[in-house]
Nucleic acid binder design. Sequence first.
DNA 1: ACCTGAACACCGTTCAAGT
DNA 2: ACCTGAACACCGTTCAAGT
Lengths: 193, 193
Amino acid sequence: MNLARSESPGAGAPRRSDALRNRERILSVAYGAFTDDPDVSLNTIAKLAGVGPGTLYRHFPTREDLILALYQHEVQAVVDSVPEVLAEREPLDALRVWFLRLAEYVRLKHGLGEALHSVAAQNMINDTYAPVTAAVGHLLNSAEQSGQVRSGLDPADVLLLMGFLWRVGPGKPGGDQAERILDMVIQGLQAET
Amino acid sequence: MNLARSESPGAGAPRRSDALRNRERILSVAYGAFTDDPDVSLNTIAKLAGVGPGTLYRHFPTREDLILALYQHEVQAVVDSVPEVLAEREPLDALRVWFLRLAEYVRLKHGLGEALHSVAAQNMINDTYAPVTAAVGHLLNSAEQSGQVRSGLDPADVLLLMGFLWRVGPGKPGGDQAERILDMVIQGLQAET
DNA sequence: ACCTGAACACCGTTCAAGT
DNA sequence: ACCTGAACACCGTTCAAGT
């Protein structure tokens, strides 16, 4: 499992300047292309980026690799907002607002949606994108220290449970379903065992 | 929205015996084919069923239509098990066990998994497959009448919240994550507002 | 070390022709 | 009323040839 050197450039940054430029061009056009049509073909993206299909494939071996790269870039901003949200609100409210913000990014900001919600993608987010889990852990710690949630909660559990947020339509009928369910979840976090 | 007659045969049963036979042959081979490989092509399924691609397309206009037809057939058994579960256990425990059973069917029983977890599929399950929501409503009513959950819960909310169940791996490390999260959810259902 | 782009096998979908 | 199967445009992926 320790193949850090001479391996697929998809993981780290490319070493040559033309490769780096191509990578950035691909990411840049892919963002817009996915927003227009989540089912856009990889060949089309390659054409839009002005590279051969082989080049796209070299940087992003699978469709999901490409989508996850875009996704991580966007979500990082939400992850970075944790300290700010914690400074402005009491911990439990911060948790609540932060998750709503995360859901907003995941759902609306770009049309990556469909492709992102597969089980595989969810597992990638949960397993390989540690910063999100770390952010959840941070929020839970604050709420726990102020006695607003019970202790011993697993951030990964909470993140998985919150997954309903990106399956709710934003403006559905019957009041705001997302807020309603979020309340139920938070009460589950508060109850002592 | 009221086009019951002269419409696509995908909805109701076909009228001619050869059409019915074809439909059943398709469903029968599709089950096994999806179990072997969730990404199997529709043309391959048509070939396996011994029908032309056009015939498959006539019965199931999209890939999801076919998958949903298989899925509904399987899930119906779980839906029908509600009275039995309620007879054997007290309501809250019945709710718990029933959802675990539903998750087992959705996750393991067949390899339809991947294709089923898209947002579109989830919406189809929530919006168009009323029997599942009705079953949840039944279980909630029982638990409410015995005072084990608070009143006014929306079955659709609860079903959406329980969606984490089919995103959990069955035998993951760290104890049983599904049971742990399920406990949190149930505590959220109990808390009074 | 990285890119190009032709090429391969296959995909979903359509539709004229049959019965 | 329903089925067949050839056909179309396109897909993801590969890989020899370049620089």
